[in-house]
Measured scan of single mutants.
Amino acid sequence: TLFEALYDYEARTEDDLSFHKGEKFQILNSSEGDWWEARSLTTGETGYIPSIYLAPV
Rank of each mutant, 00 (worst) to 15 (best):
D8L: 02
I27K: 04
N29Y: 07
G33I: 11
T13P: 05
S31E: 10
S40M: 05
P56C: 06
S18E: 04
Y7Q: 11
H20M: 11
R39I: 13
E14F: 09
F3E: 00
V57M: 07
A11C: 06
E14D: 13
T42N: 09
E4G: 03
R39V: 12
A55E: 10
H20V: 13
D15R: 15
K21S: 07
E32A: 13
T46L: 07
Y7L: 10
D34Y: 14
E14L: 12
N29R: 07
P50Y: 13
A38V: 15
L17D: 00
L54Y: 01
A5L: 06
S40G: 02
P56M: 09
F19G: 01
D8I: 02
L54N: 00
P56I: 08
L28K: 04
D8T: 06
D16S: 14
N29S: 11
R12D: 10
T46I: 14
E32P: 09
F19W: 02
V57T: 08
Q26E: 15
W35E: 05
A55L: 08
Y9H: 07
T43R: 04
Q26M: 12
E23Y: 04
S30V: 12
W35H: 08
R39F: 09
W35I: 10
A5I: 02
F25I: 02
D8E: 07
F25S: 00
A55K: 12
T46S: 09
E23D: 15
D8A: 07
S40N: 11
L41E: 06
F19M: 13
E4V: 14
V57N: 04
I49R: 00
T42M: 11
I27M: 03
S40P: 00
E45G: 08
G47C: 03
S30C: 13
G47S: 03
A11T: 05
R12N: 10
A38Q: 00
S18A: 07
E45Q: 14
F19E: 00
F19N: 00
E37H: 14
E32D: 14
Y48N: 07
F3C: 05
D16Q: 15
E4T: 08
G44V: 01
T42R: 13
G22S: 04
Y53W: 06
T43Q: 02
G44R: 04
R39D: 01
G44I: 01
D34C: 13
A5F: 01
D16G: 15
S18T: 10
K21W: 04
D16I: 12
E37S: 07
L17W: 05
R39P: 00
A11Q: 07
S31H: 10
L54P: 01
T1V: 13
L54I: 09
D34R: 06
E10S: 10
Q26G: 03
I27L: 06
T46F: 06
I49P: 00
L2E: 06
A55G: 10
I49L: 08
L2H: 06
T1Q: 14
A38S: 04
L2W: 09
G47W: 04
L17C: 03
E23M: 06
A5K: 00
T1C: 13
